[in-house]
Amino acid sequence: MSIPPPPGPQQPQGQYPHGGPGSQAPYAYNPYAPYGPYGSYGRQTPVNGAAIGALVLGVLCFLPAVGLVLGVIALLQIRKRGERGKGMAVAGSVLSSIGLALWVLALSTGAAADVWGGFKDAANGEGTPYALAKGDCFDSPTGNLEGEAYDIDEVPCSGRHDGEVFAVVKLPGGAFPGDDEVTRIADDKCYALQDTYAMDGWAVPDDADVYYFIPSRRSWRFGDHEITCLFGSTEENGRLTGSLRNDATTLDADQVAFLRAMRAVDDALDGEPDDYAEDDLLANQTWAGEVADVTGAQAKALSGRTWPAGAGKPVADLVEEMRDASREWTAAAKSPYADDYYEHYDEAYAYVDGRTTVTARKALGLDTTYPTYEDDSEGADGGGSAAA
């Protein structure tokens, strides 16, 4: 690296008016040498690097103490070397001094901690749907759980809220699978997982339904590979009140055992064929036989358990009705004609969620409000989705 010549008139190299190489005589005056910030041969004097660094740090207000030190060093080097950049050094020093004063003020008032907390929250996705976890409740700034969602406000589940998360489904990495595929996965997973969070469907309000946050193509690029399943109200401007969670974390062992048995029967009933027995008797007979087996097995499981005081007889009465229902389902499965099939079908359904079920639930401290079910065939509105 060459050292720049000192400022002022200089003799071009190769000319020795007072002697050859090594002569100690001073250079002769060269009338063609430029003046000012230029050295010999018209080369511009370089800008001091420390001055540039001081200005950059001063403008960015980043490491103001370093910027101030660089500014002082730059001024000393410029004076000694004759380099350019004095204005940059002065400006950087002034801006760094102001930045340093602001940092001292921020530290003394606690504002710096708030700023750092904001950086950490942003890095963790705090305040966005991406940060929600199972059991969290939140409000949407728009009060709407459909469309695109950019930010949310987490709130206690004990009060009123727009949504409650009941599951988070991790998606594999790689390329974005597409909006349709992500929505399909959300439909399958979220509706299947709702009962693991809210085991007692009777305790879920009639206006509560399944919604979900799904990643968009844009958020996928930033690492958003999760589907957030949640409960929300289907009513216009409707909200949920209190947590809907009722699982092993909030229920006792007897309540969990009872609800699992009832859920198994409900799942079997949900598998009823779409075709009537007149159109497809075999399919309906097969389904009735499956319901008979499940109902009988769950009756046996309930009867083999020791229940707390006050719940033994109500549960025993329910078990007897479940056994009667199982026999009717078995008869329906063997019916040779559709009319005969429906006679046993109606008798079996008479035992489902009847008076004995309500009595047993009350004895176990479970909800006794009989739920209402919407007919999907009539196009009832369900939940929805939002892109995170």
Rank of each mutant, 00 (worst) to 15 (best):
E146T: 07
A192I: 01
A133G: 04
D188F: 01
G127M: 06
D195W: 14
L132V: 03
C190W: 03
N144F: 06
D188M: 00
E146I: 00
L132W: 11
F119M: 14
V168H: 01
D207H: 08
C137I: 12
A123H: 13
N144E: 12
A123S: 11
D188N: 01
G173Q: 04
D153T: 14
E126R: 11
C157L: 02
A175Q: 09
V168I: 02
G178V: 13
D187S: 11
E148G: 10
D114S: 12
P129D: 13
A167D: 08
G163I: 09
P156L: 05
A149D: 03
E154G: 04
D180Y: 07
A133W: 08
Y150T: 13
K170S: 14
D153V: 12
A122H: 08
V204A: 07
A175S: 15
G178H: 12
L193C: 00
V182Y: 04
C190R: 10
W202L: 01
D180A: 13
P141V: 13
E181L: 09
P205F: 00
Q194F: 03
D179K: 08
A122N: 11
A175P: 02
Q194P: 06
D114Q: 14
H161A: 08
R184A: 15
Q194Y: 11
T196D: 14
F119D: 01
C157H: 02
D200N: 13
G174I: 14
W116F: 15
D136W: 02
G163D: 05
D187H: 14
D207F: 01
K134P: 08
P129C: 08
G125F: 02
P205T: 03
Y191I: 09
W202E: 00
F176N: 01
